[in-house]
Amino acid sequence: MILRHYARRGRIALSFVEPRADGWFAADDLLAAFSKGVDLAVVSQVVFNTGQVFLELPALIAAAHAAGARVLVDVYHSLGVLPVDVAALDADFAIGGSYKYLRGGPGACFLYLHPRHLDGSLTTLDTGWFAKREPFAYQRPDPPQFASGGDAFLESTPAILPWYQARAGQVFTLAIGVQRLRAYSLLQQQRLVALLRERGVDADGGTRERGAFVIIRDAHAVELALVLQERGVHGDARGSYLRLCPDVLTTDAELVAAAEIHAAVRADRNI
């Protein structure tokens, strides 16, 4: 949405690579877009609606760099789900937050910059007073004098409580380990997919090319999500994709109940 807004205001020229008919993005389509010449390529490591994992991400980043582009990786749906190493990926930038799989609640989000971009050669369009070289001097030099390193990208006065709230989720994730969380998530997804299919519901999830949630593709996904929430099954919908995400605390009995309630809702509504 932010990029679209910038494009409408003439700040950037924006183009999109669309998914194919099955809803998945093809690496070849992104590679073709890079070859046309771009300044910044924005790629999600895990796609928010289908759960597609870009297994080809290292090759995509390398190709973008070879074409002269910088790469911003969205890790919202991969951080805490998959082992994420932005340094190994050689990503220029990464954005993420704690409110999803790091179990930290809203408000604690971040921007990662590769060390090669900390020399002051890049500036951002939007900053706050914390980005000043001397924020507490209460001066307004013109042109602005930005802080060194990543501090030049800071916004205004940050909320402090969300960062303390987020720490518990980070400590939990580090204590358990992302590899163990991933393995358990895949087992839960596979169990839920099997339970749904036993009841005639076509679902996908639990494979290495998918993120942390099970999807059910249905034209009535938004309606289904609302009805399921009324009956105690808390999923959500993104377009025609219903998303169900078992958590580490989700019991097997809850997975069985979710499948039974889902099948009953479809039967009641003749979906």
Results as ranks from 00 to 15, higher is better:
42 V>G: 03
53 V>T: 09
67 A>N: 13
67 A>L: 03
54 F>L: 14
42 V>L: 09
34 F>V: 09
46 V>M: 06
47 V>N: 13
35 S>A: 15
52 Q>T: 03
21 A>T: 09
65 H>M: 07
49 N>A: 13
37 G>D: 02
22 D>C: 07
50 T>P: 04
65 H>P: 03
64 A>G: 06
48 F>N: 14
39 D>K: 11
26 A>W: 07
62 A>T: 12
22 D>E: 07
38 V>K: 12
47 V>W: 07
50 T>E: 06
56 E>N: 08
25 F>I: 07
62 A>P: 02
63 A>G: 11
34 F>D: 05
23 G>A: 05
40 L>P: 01
25 F>A: 06
37 G>F: 05
24 W>I: 11
43 V>W: 02
50 T>N: 09
54 F>H: 15
23 G>K: 09
48 F>T: 12
55 L>P: 00
35 S>F: 04
68 G>L: 02
57 L>K: 04
32 A>K: 12
40 L>V: 10
40 L>E: 01
41 A>C: 03
65 H>F: 07
55 L>H: 12
64 A>C: 05
49 N>Q: 12
33 A>T: 05
23 G>T: 05
37 G>I: 05
40 L>D: 01
41 A>V: 07
61 I>K: 01
46 V>E: 04
45 Q>W: 10
46 V>S: 02
59 A>T: 11
27 A>G: 14
40 L>Y: 02
47 V>D: 11
52 Q>G: 02
63 A>K: 13
21 A>I: 09
24 W>P: 09
53 V>Q: 04
36 K>Q: 14
